[in-house]
Simulated assay, not measured.
Amino acid sequence: MVAPLPDITLASPHPPPLPSLVNARQLRTQRLGRALRLWVPVGVLILLLAICFLLPLVVTLPSATSGNIIYNNEPPFSPGHILGTDVQGVDLFSQLVYGGQVAFEVGISVTVIGIAIGGTLGVIAAYFGGWVDAVISRVFDILIAFPALVLALVIAEGLGPTEMHVIWALAVFGIPAVGRVARGATLTIRGLPFMTAARLAGTRRWRIIARHVVPNIMPNIVTFSLLGLGIIIILEGALDFLGYGIQRPTPSWGNMIANGQQILSAQPEYVLIPSVALLITVAALNMLGDALRERWGAQ
């Protein structure tokens, strides 16, 4: 009886890569992806800020508040008007640049107010608890229960259509939103061992808050505030569009869209240009917030 031949498997001319090489390649790809998700929106925001705030200091732009009616409705890339002019002959690029200044000034101001006031109240409510937490939490709940745009409309109408009044009208929405995030993050770390050790060591409450609570909750607050900044810029544009925010001749992206809707069918670029600028800004802020949340492990 003939013995069966042994099972011989021919070697592949292209052997599979070693597991260590595969893992290294995947790791490099993941690192590159994380870096791109972070630095692409950072680059976009830096470019937008440079155009809005630095370009007018370097280049003399046409007036953004007045123009010559003789040169109205100039198409893009006309001499002296890279994006053309509107129905009043006002340069669209200048309006876009100075409208971006308004959007960033309002958004950043509201965000800073929300972090300073809402963040402080949220930390105090969570750390001290008891009736302090109950009172502050109920105030937050009442403010958040109102639709943000409706509440901002009422406040802006009562105060008047100026940039500072728009900031405070939107801050009423931003303060409780940041406050609830700060309160939740503080409750998460309040019972951790290092907090208990600090209290048992006799450290003063305000020192514990400054040295232990604030540094540990800042990633949550920063990532949420970046996402909220995009919402604030949209709300500011909505107020201007409805006529309750920044009024012409002061340019803003919202009143540029409102001004262009009258001739939308004939010249849609009047609406598309500020709309695209608003879209790019908000998308970059959202991407940056998501990237930082992934990097910091924030909730």
Rank of each mutant, 00 (worst) to 15 (best):
D290V: 02
Y270L: 14
G84F: 01
A24N: 13
F224W: 13
R205A: 14
L272A: 15
P176A: 02
G191D: 15
A11T: 13
H14S: 13
P6R: 12
A116R: 08
T203E: 13
G191H: 13
D91L: 03
A266D: 15
S252I: 00
A283Y: 14
G33Q: 15
L57P: 06
T281V: 10
Q95K: 00
S63F: 00
V214K: 09
P16A: 09
S78N: 13
L187W: 11
S20P: 03
L57K: 12
T186E: 07
W168P: 02
E269L: 12
T29A: 15
T85R: 04
R31A: 14
S109Y: 01
M164P: 04
P4M: 03
L151F: 13
A145F: 04
V97I: 06
A145H: 03
G43C: 10
N286E: 14
G228I: 09
E163P: 00
D86A: 07
L149P: 00
R183E: 15
S265Y: 12
L279N: 09
L38I: 07
L32W: 15
M256P: 12
I70Q: 15
V282E: 14
L10V: 04
P6S: 11
I233S: 05
A284T: 11
W296C: 10
Q30F: 11
I46Y: 07
G114V: 03
F173G: 01
W253A: 00
V271N: 07
V106I: 08
A284C: 09
R37I: 10
S20V: 09
L27W: 09
N286P: 10
Q299E: 15
I113M: 02
F224K: 08
I82Q: 13
L121F: 15
L239H: 02
A169G: 13
A201S: 15
G89P: 06
V97C: 04
S63V: 01
F93Y: 11
